[in-house]
Amino acid sequence: MSFQGSTSDIVKSAMVRTVGQLATHGSAARLLLMVHDELVFEVPEREVEMVAKIVRDTMESTAKLRVPLEVEVEVGPNLLDMQELKVDR
């Protein structure tokens, strides 16, 4: 149980940090909702690559653990048609 609560805290912290980073970079992306351990953003097409990198980097660095936090990024016009986007590290 404690791990599940910790995971929730990490995701919430990552969410706050990510929104702040997007604002710092002047992005027009908006956080729409959180579904379990996933964040759903609305992003202008011209910003997809930039936002994907910011989101992944910020979320992966939110907590320092013995095991690395890994973030997968998917993009698409709707939740049914999402495809993984490979983002350079």
Rank of each mutant, 00 (worst) to 15 (best):
A63V: 00
S13V: 03
T62Y: 02
T58A: 04
V48T: 13
K86F: 07
V67Q: 00
D81P: 01
V51Q: 08
Q21L: 08
E84Q: 13
V11M: 15
P77M: 08
A29V: 09
G20C: 04
E74R: 15
S27Y: 06
L32D: 07
D88T: 12
L22A: 02
V87Q: 00
E74K: 15
L32F: 05
V87S: 01
V51Y: 06
K64R: 12
P68L: 01
A28Y: 08
L39T: 07
R89I: 04
T18M: 05
V87Y: 01
V87D: 01
L22M: 10
T58V: 14
A52I: 10
D88I: 09
Q4R: 15
L69T: 02
L32R: 11
P44A: 05
R56W: 00
A52T: 10
Q4Y: 11
T7S: 14
M82L: 15
P68D: 02
M1H: 15
V19W: 02
L65F: 00
P68K: 01
E60I: 00
R30M: 10
R17N: 14
L69N: 00
Q4G: 05
T7Q: 13
D57H: 04
V48Y: 04
G20E: 13
V75M: 10
V16N: 08
P44T: 11
V51N: 07
E49W: 02
S13M: 12
L22Q: 03
L33N: 06
E45Q: 14
L31Q: 08
D88R: 14
T7F: 10
E47F: 07
S8F: 07
V87R: 01
K53W: 10
V75C: 09
D81H: 11
E70Y: 00
A23D: 15
V16A: 14
T62P: 09
V19A: 09
T18A: 10
P44Q: 11
L32Q: 11
D37T: 08
L79P: 05
K86C: 02
K64N: 03
D88L: 06
R17K: 15
E45L: 13
R17D: 15
E70C: 01
A29W: 08
D9L: 04
E74V: 03
R30A: 14
K53Q: 12
V67D: 00
V51I: 13
L32Y: 11
D81C: 07
T24H: 14
L69E: 01
E70L: 01
E84A: 11
K86A: 02
G26Q: 04
F41N: 07
V73T: 09
L31M: 13
Q83S: 13
V16W: 03
S61N: 14
V35W: 05
E60L: 00
E49K: 05
T18P: 07
E38V: 03
E74Y: 12
K64T: 09
